[in-house]
């Protein structure tokens, strides 16, 4: 009976989706062949059930404007982005931009925290949508299989910033650069402008976070806006994709050598952020 119900649901969703979107999903499916899921559990079909909602968030709530999508080369690529906004909506918006607005559509894979696979439902949801446990081996495998991989080298240091540090890039991890050198992968710097203001956060209760063993306990001001509750502010997102950078060298080089190359990427991301801050007319426009 359940499977009959599932069939009815699938048909209902299919008939409501615009044909252009279905074509895009078919293209992603074709990339993994005739298997229901790829080796990591990514199931392009599942995008159908998420995209109608995410598309509304992307087009109406955040009015996302992707700029420079044509810079993303075919084949394997590392997208290196700034991380901001308390909740990782920036990752979702970058991934959506690549599915809805890139030509051809690309299924970007991103790396999730180590505790995610232990959460029921969440773990399946993430893996079906192509998210992968963040280990260097997994990243290497995805790049060898020619996938675009999204990395936030600032990690939680970036996403949990208070508003006085908005658009200040934090220290970048070096792991992505060693992988790029090892697998000869081009790097596309990505600057996300707008996400910093979705949850304006004057305080981060570091003491409480430490006591609870959490990375951060931010106190955003969103509940003060009548009717908003814990929803993010409908800020305008601008996502800048820079020109691809290629690096050559020994992946096992000294930290200082790697740090210099990471610095180049960090400067490129920073340049995109500065450009975005000049080009935007305010938080919401």
């Amino acid at each position: 009976m359940l499977s009959a119900l599932q069939d009815i649901l699938v048909e209902a969703v299919d008939s409501r989706l615009p044909s252009e979107l279905l074509d895009r999903i078919d293209e992603l499916q074709a990339a993994i062949g005739d298997r229901p899921a790829d080796d990591f559990g990514f199931t392009p079909e599942q995008i159908k059930y998420v995209v109608p909602v995410v598309e509304q968030v992307y087009r109406r709530w955040f009015r996302v404007e992707p700029i420079g999508l044509e810079h993303i080369p075919p084949g394997r690529v590392l997208l290196i982005a700034n991380h901001s906004g308390q909740v990782p909506i920036d990752a979702m918006m970058i991934a959506t931009a690549l599915i809805l607005d890139a030509d051809p559509p690309r299924a970007v894979r991103s790396m999730v925290e180590r505790w995610v696979p232990s959460l029921p439902f969440v773990s399946v949801f993430f893996s079906r949508l192509g998210q992968v446990l963040g280990t260097p081996e997994n990243c290497r495998t995805l790049l060898r299989e020619e996938h675009p991989v999204l990395v936030f080298p600032e990690g939680v240091r970036g996403i949990n910033k208070t508003w006085d540090h908005a658009y200040e890039l934090q220290a970048f991890g070096h792991g992505f650069m060693r992988l790029a050198l090892e697998t000869n992968t081009p790097i596309v710097p990505v600057g996300v402008v707008g996400a910093e203001e979705q949850y304006p956060t004057p305080w981060n209760l570091t003491g409480v976070a430490k006591a609870l063993g959490l990375p951060a306990v931010p106190v955003p001001l969103n509940p003060l806006v009548p009717g908003l509750g814990l929803l993010p502010l409908p800020v305008k997102y601008r996502i800048y994709f820079g020109r691809p950078l290629t690096f050559i060298g020994d992946p096992d080089d000294d930290e200082a050598e790697i740090a210099a190359r990471v610095g180049v990427v960090r400067d490129a991301v920073d340049g995109l952020l500065r450009r975005g801050l000049i080009e935007r007319k305010g938080w919401f426009r």
Partner: peptide, 9 residues
Amino acid sequence: RADNTQFLT
């Protein structure tokens, strides 16, 4: 294990 890499060598 929850934190196993996808393909263990």
